[in-house]
Lab assay of single mutants.
Amino acid sequence: NKASVVANQLIPINTALTLIMMKAEVVTPMGIPAEEIPKLVGMQVNRAVPLGTTLMPDKVKNYE
């Protein structure tokens, strides 16, 4: 099972992601793969992401 990116804290809307905000966890359904964490640093979320929520591609601005 592959790990996904999960919010390590509440991430407010329009916040630029940092390493400390994210952790890798095996979750269902799968979100953004954990190996993409370095790519996500500096990207902004387009909505608030509660603690423990899986980061889905549609929650990150300009994620492809």
Rank of each mutant, 00 (worst) to 15 (best):
A24G: 10
I11T: 04
P29N: 04
N46L: 15
M22I: 07
A16C: 14
T53I: 07
A48R: 11
V60P: 04
L40H: 00
A48M: 13
K2H: 14
A34I: 05
T18A: 09
P33N: 08
D58G: 09
T53H: 13
N8G: 10
E64T: 14
M43V: 05
T54Q: 00
N1H: 14
E25H: 09
V41K: 00
G31N: 02
P50D: 09
Q44K: 11
P29S: 06
V45G: 02
D58H: 11
I13Q: 11
V26D: 07
V49T: 05
T53P: 04
P29M: 03
E36Q: 11
V45I: 05
P12V: 07
T53C: 15
K2I: 14
G31Q: 04
M30D: 07
T18I: 08
V60C: 04
G31F: 04
T54L: 05
I11M: 04
E64V: 15
K2Y: 14
Y63C: 05
I20R: 12
L17G: 05
T18N: 07
I11H: 01
V5E: 02
L40C: 03
N8S: 14
V6S: 04
M21G: 06
K61D: 09
A7E: 02
T15K: 05
Q9S: 07
K23L: 09
T28D: 14
D58L: 01
V45L: 08
Y63T: 04
Y63A: 03
L19G: 07
G52W: 02
R47A: 15
N62M: 09
D58F: 10
M30S: 12
L55P: 02
T28I: 12
R47F: 11
I13E: 14
E35H: 13
A7M: 04
A34T: 04
T28M: 13
K39E: 09
I11A: 01
N8V: 11
E25Y: 09
K2F: 12
E64R: 12
Y63F: 07
Q44V: 14
V6D: 03
T28P: 03
K59R: 15
K39T: 11
T54S: 03
L10F: 15
I13G: 07
L40W: 01
M22Y: 03
M22A: 05
M43D: 03
E64N: 13
I13Y: 08
P29G: 05
N8Y: 05
V45T: 08
A34F: 07
M43Q: 05
L55I: 13
A34N: 05
K59G: 15
V49Y: 06
A24P: 10
K61C: 11
V5S: 00
L19F: 12
N46S: 12
N8D: 07
V5Q: 03
K2E: 10
I37K: 01
I32Q: 01
N1R: 11
A34H: 04
G31Y: 03
G42W: 03
A7R: 00
L55A: 01
A24N: 02
A7I: 05
K2Q: 14
L51M: 15
S4I: 01
V5A: 08
M30R: 11
N62Q: 08
N14W: 14
V60K: 02
V6A: 03
A48T: 15
P38E: 10
D58N: 11
S4H: 04
M56S: 14
L17K: 00
V5P: 01
T54Y: 00
T28F: 13
V27L: 04
K39Q: 12
V26H: 12
M21Y: 05
G42A: 02
V45A: 01
E35V: 13
L10S: 13
P50Y: 07
I20H: 12
L51G: 09
P38V: 08
T15N: 04
P29H: 05
M21F: 05
Q44S: 10
M21D: 08
L10W: 13
P33K: 07
M43A: 06
K2T: 12
K61V: 14
L19H: 08
V27N: 01
L51S: 14
E35S: 13
N62S: 08
E25G: 10
Q44T: 12
P12W: 07
A3L: 09
L17D: 07
V27F: 02
P50I: 08
P50H: 09
L51K: 15
L51I: 13
P38R: 09
M30V: 12
I32D: 02
V5T: 04
A48G: 06
A7W: 01
I32V: 03
N14D: 13
M21E: 08
E64G: 13
I37W: 04
G42F: 07
P57V: 01
E64F: 12
T53M: 12
V5L: 04
V26N: 10
D58W: 14
A24W: 07
P29W: 07
Y63V: 04
V26M: 12
L17E: 07
N14C: 14
G31I: 03
K59W: 15
L40K: 02
P38L: 10
E36K: 12
A48I: 11
P57S: 05
P50F: 07
P29E: 05
L55K: 01
V6L: 06
K59A: 15
V27C: 08
A34Y: 04
P12R: 08
N46P: 03
D58A: 07
Q9C: 15
N8F: 06
V5G: 02
I13K: 14
P57G: 06
P57R: 06
P33Q: 05
M56H: 10
K39I: 13
T53E: 15
M21I: 06
I11K: 01
T18F: 06
E64A: 12
V41I: 12
M56T: 15
V5Y: 02
K2W: 13
P12Y: 07
M56K: 01
I37Q: 05
L19C: 14
P38G: 09
P12F: 07
Q44G: 06
D58R: 01
A48C: 13
V5F: 05
V49F: 06
Q9R: 11
V27Y: 05
P29I: 08
L17H: 00
L55G: 01
E36M: 13
G42C: 07
T18G: 07
L19K: 10
N46G: 06
N1V: 15
G52E: 04
T53L: 01
G31V: 01
I20T: 12
L17N: 03
Y63H: 04
P57C: 05
N14R: 01
M21S: 07
N1M: 15
A7N: 03
N62F: 11
M30P: 14
A3C: 12
P38D: 09
A24H: 03
V6M: 01
V5I: 14
L55Y: 00
N1S: 13
T15G: 05
I32T: 05
A7P: 00
V27H: 03
T53G: 13
L17Y: 00
P50R: 07
A24I: 08
K61R: 12
Q44E: 14
M30I: 12
S4D: 02
V49C: 09
A7G: 04
P38N: 10
G52K: 00
